[in-house]
Amino acid sequence: MRAGRLTNGQFAWLLMLPALALFLAIIAYPLISSVVTGFFEQSLVRPGRAFTGLANFADVLGGDFWPVLRNTLVFTAGATIVPFLIGYALALALNAGIRGSGLMRGLFLFPWVIPGVVVSFLWLWIFNANYGVLNGILLRLGILDAPVSWLGEPATAMIAVIVTKSWASFPWIMVMLLAGLQTMPKELHEAASVDGAGAIRRFISVTLPHMKGIASIVVLLEFIWNFQHFDTIYVLTGGGPAGATETFAVAVYDTAFKGFDLGHATALGGLWMLLLLVLVAFYLRHETKERS
């Protein structure tokens, strides 16, 4: 090696420096700063801060943490299971080669490519109590006697939010599952048919085992994304009514930017992050197990 020349290792580090600098500035520093802020009493409207130790975490756990956790789990489970079932059914139908499957495959992708905020405002209009399309249809059919405030009642607000998120996310699930179905050897179904297996039996004995890996990955990823979802809930209900749809994402935002309490907001965010890390660790373990 000539003097002044960089070694391969030094050159590799030189190439990594811009990305490493961006990682430290955009991810590492804000993350560490937010974790540290959770141990202080700090406000957006007052200068300075005071160390409080674990007081913020104790206040959060003794406050609305558990109702918020329950709402988050209900939303996450509903917004994962409902679009998964719809996406799986559509993937099976499209894979069967029904007439117009190519056109339908393209049309079904529209909800996925529309920005989440636009989707939320569309469904905000659909669920509107005074001039919403849903109330109009149900009143004409005689199913309702009076308009329903879908987003204003605790009993229906969470259902409305889950329906909206499901409509936006089922196309992605459909595409992923359809790709998995198209990798299935046709000989497996043909052999099962020769053995006398009907459509239901072939689905249980052939399709489900083949799709187990990709289906579990899709469910895990969708669950993780929904666990930290924000825009649909915030646009439709803002966490209301009476906190019925308040999830971690909404609670952290409201605590920080409406209550101006950075200490409690970052403490709540820290606990939320720990739960997310558990989900991510479970996903990574699953991925490692599938590859081995």
Score class of each variant (00 low, 15 high):
L236R: 04
L138R: 01
Y131H: 09
A160N: 08
L54S: 06
G213R: 05
T266G: 00
Y131S: 09
W225R: 02
P241V: 11
G53V: 01
I233F: 10
W112H: 05
S33C: 06
V206Y: 10
A199V: 14
V148D: 04
F223I: 05
S43T: 10
F110D: 00
L268T: 00
A267R: 06
V35I: 15
D64S: 15
L69W: 13
L221S: 02
V45Q: 02
V119I: 15
E41N: 10
A79H: 08
L279E: 02
R105W: 02
G62C: 07
N8V: 12
S101K: 03
L24S: 05
F257T: 05
I233C: 09
I173S: 03
R70M: 12
A3R: 14
A215Y: 12
V118H: 03
V235T: 14
Y234I: 01
P47K: 05
E222H: 08
L275D: 03
L22Y: 14
L151R: 03
P147E: 07
R291V: 10
S120T: 10
F203T: 07
M158H: 04
A197Y: 12
I27W: 12
T37W: 10
L268M: 15
P83G: 03
R46K: 08
L262E: 00
E287N: 14
I162C: 10
V161W: 01
A96T: 06
A146F: 15
G152L: 03
